[in-house]
Simulated scan of single mutants.
Amino acid sequence: MNNVWFITGSARGLGRSLTEAVLARGGRVAATARQPEQLADLVTRYGRQVLPLALDVTDAAQITAAVATAVAHFGRLDVVVNNAGFGITGAAEAYSEEQVRSQLETNLYAPIAITRAVLPYLRRQGSGHILQISSVGGRVGNAGVSIYQAAKFGLSGFTEALAKEVAPLGIRVTAVEPGGFRTDWAGASMRFAPAIAGYDLVQQRADFFASGSFVPVGDPAKAAQVMLDLVQHPHPPVHLVLGSEAAAMLRQADADRRAEFEHWLPVTLSTDHDEADAANFLQTAMGQSLLAERGKPRGSE
Score class of each variant (00 low, 15 high):
residue 1 M to K: 11
residue 5 W to Q: 12
residue 6 F to D: 07
residue 10 S to V: 08
residue 10 S to R: 09
residue 12 R to Y: 06
residue 13 G to C: 03
residue 14 L to F: 15
residue 17 S to I: 00
residue 17 S to Q: 02
residue 25 R to Q: 15
residue 26 G to A: 13
residue 26 G to Y: 12
residue 34 R to L: 11
residue 35 Q to I: 12
residue 36 P to M: 03
residue 39 L to D: 08
residue 40 A to H: 13
residue 46 Y to L: 08
residue 61 A to Y: 07
residue 61 A to E: 14
residue 62 Q to M: 12
residue 62 Q to L: 07
residue 63 I to M: 05
residue 64 T to D: 14
residue 66 A to R: 11
residue 67 V to D: 11
residue 67 V to H: 05
residue 69 T to I: 03
residue 73 H to F: 10
residue 75 G to R: 02
residue 78 D to N: 06
residue 79 V to K: 10
residue 80 V to Q: 03
residue 81 V to M: 01
residue 81 V to D: 02
residue 82 N to H: 10
residue 86 F to M: 03
residue 86 F to S: 00
residue 90 G to Q: 10
residue 90 G to H: 08
residue 93 E to S: 03
residue 93 E to Y: 08
residue 93 E to V: 06
residue 94 A to N: 08
residue 95 Y to M: 02
residue 96 S to I: 09
residue 98 E to K: 14
residue 100 V to G: 09
residue 104 L to N: 00
residue 108 L to C: 05
residue 108 L to M: 10
residue 111 P to A: 02
residue 113 A to D: 11
residue 113 A to R: 07
residue 114 I to H: 00
residue 116 R to C: 00
residue 121 Y to H: 15
residue 122 L to H: 12
residue 123 R to N: 01
residue 123 R to A: 08
residue 123 R to V: 04
residue 125 Q to G: 02
residue 128 G to L: 09
residue 129 H to F: 05
residue 134 S to R: 06
residue 136 V to P: 05
residue 136 V to A: 08
residue 136 V to E: 08
residue 150 A to H: 08
residue 156 S to N: 05
residue 159 T to F: 11
residue 160 E to Q: 14
residue 162 L to G: 04
residue 163 A to T: 01
residue 163 A to P: 02
residue 167 A to G: 15
residue 168 P to R: 01
residue 169 L to T: 09
residue 169 L to I: 06
residue 175 A to T: 05
residue 175 A to R: 01
residue 176 V to M: 00
residue 178 P to R: 00
residue 179 G to P: 05
residue 181 F to I: 08
residue 181 F to H: 03
residue 186 A to N: 10
residue 186 A to R: 01
residue 187 G to H: 12
residue 191 R to Q: 15
residue 191 R to T: 13
residue 192 F to A: 03
residue 194 P to T: 02
residue 196 I to Q: 15
residue 199 Y to Q: 06
residue 200 D to L: 09
residue 202 V to K: 06
residue 207 D to E: 12
residue 210 A to E: 12
residue 211 S to M: 06
residue 212 G to R: 03
residue 212 G to I: 11
residue 212 G to L: 12
residue 215 V to K: 15
residue 216 P to M: 07
residue 218 G to K: 01
residue 221 A to I: 10
residue 222 K to T: 14
residue 223 A to L: 01
residue 224 A to F: 08
residue 225 Q to Y: 10
residue 225 Q to F: 04
residue 226 V to Y: 07
residue 227 M to E: 06
residue 229 D to E: 15
residue 230 L to F: 11
residue 232 Q to P: 00
residue 239 H to N: 11
residue 242 L to D: 08
residue 245 E to W: 00
residue 246 A to E: 04
residue 248 A to Y: 09
residue 255 A to K: 04
residue 256 D to E: 15
residue 257 R to P: 05
residue 261 F to H: 12
residue 261 F to Q: 13
residue 263 H to V: 02
residue 264 W to N: 06
residue 266 P to A: 06
residue 267 V to N: 07
residue 269 L to S: 10
residue 270 S to M: 10
residue 276 A to E: 07
residue 277 D to N: 15
residue 278 A to Y: 13
residue 280 N to M: 13
residue 282 L to C: 05
residue 283 Q to T: 15
residue 295 G to K: 03
residue 298 R to Q: 14
residue 300 S to P: 13
